[in-house]
């Protein structure tokens, strides 16, 4: 009896020591996250003041919610900005299944070399900066001397006038969504490929025994196996719905002809906040966006939980 108690105590002590060790190891990470993710949030306070770089906090003028109100100064512009943000984000959300489909198709390729080649080529654009991507696009699509227009207008004579892909307001949203896909499709597919790899192969074997074909296996095993990953990405994407494809893409690809379609909250905040030196305004916008994003993510998470019974949080 005594021996059993001693053994139990030893086990408890060993477990406690292990927990302590894990806790100690996690401390730097906690500090890291606190220092770089939470401490900077203290800077949000300047949203309520008129902030000038270097001026002591005590000398700043408190203006309450004035900086938040400033966002709505030009209502017409705000409506455009919010519309663009939601449309561009919505289009990205609509294309969320594409990386999963791409991953499934990739997984079905039997020729290993070809599979790797496709995967490599589709992943590379993710690592190219938007600036380089824009240069590549203009080299191909420029109306004056782009490869495509030179071919279609000068060489083949198919068109009378060159195509204006990058400056056409009517197709701006489509072009930007296609650009986003070109850059991210392959990379996002990696997540699904790893999810596919984790599906128990016995399920496929059993399905084969039951006479399931390739499409049946995809539909009844692979797709359900990918759903948890899809849901996680969907919730995260809804959380970043106020960012769309991110600041860089719209900033780099934007020009006067299409800015009415590409001006999103991030670019607008940058212009009115950073470029004009209205740091308080920029911070207020950023704060408002962060709070709304967290709210949207929580709502999406709750909805998913209700529908599927599982979620991120």
């Amino acid at each position: 009896m005594k021996q059993a108690r001693v053994k139990e105590n030893k086990f408890r002590n060993a477990k406690a020591a292990e927990k302590r060790k894990l806790f100690l190891i996690s401390i730097p990470f906690l500090i890291f996250i606190t220092a770089f993710s939470y401490v900077p949030l203290l800077g949000w306070v300047i949203s309520f003041f008129i902030y000038y770089p270097g001026i002591p906090f005590s000398k700043m003028e408190f203006v309450g919610l004035k900086n938040f109100e400033a966002f709505f100064y030009n209502k017409k512009q705000v409506i455009t900005v919010v519309r663009n943000t939601f449309v561009l984000s919505g289009l990205i959300i609509l294309t969320l299944p594409l990386p999963a489909i791409f991953a499934i198709l990739l997984n079905e390729i039997r020729n290993l070399k070809f599979k790797k080649l496709v995967q490599t080529f589709s992943t590379i654009p993710y690592f190219i900066s938007y600036v380089l991507l824009y240069l590549a696009f203009t080299t191909i699509l420029s109306p004056s001397d782009g490869m495509l227009n030179t071919l279609l207008v000068d060489n083949l004579g198919i068109l009378d006038k060159p195509l204006n892909v990058l400056t056409n307001e009517k197709i701006a949203w489509t072009v930007q969504t296609a650009t986003y896909l070109f850059k991210n499709l392959g990379y996002n597919a990696i997540l699904y490929l790893s999810a596919i790899a984790s599906i128990d192969t016995q399920l496929y074997e059993a399905a084969e025994v039951d006479g399931a074909g390739r499409f049946d296996k995809i539909w009844h095993i692979t797709v359900p196996g990918l759903l948890p990953t899809f849901v996680v990405l969907l919730v995260l994407q809804i959380g970043s719905v106020l960012s769309g494809a991110g600041f860089e893409q719209y900033y780099v690809f934007g020009n006067g002809m299409i800015m009415d379609k590409l001006e999103v909250i991030d670019t607008y905040t940058y212009k009115m906040g950073i470029v004009q030196g209205n740091y308080s305004f920029g911070t207020a916008m950023s704060m408002m966006k962060s709070v709304l994003s967290v709210g949207l993510m929580l709502i999406a998470n709750t909805l998913v939980k209700k529908i599927r019974g599982s979620s991120i949080f």
Partner: peptide
Amino acid sequence: LDPGAMTM
């Protein structure tokens, strides 16, 4: 006007 001006 150079048609490429808008993308340059």
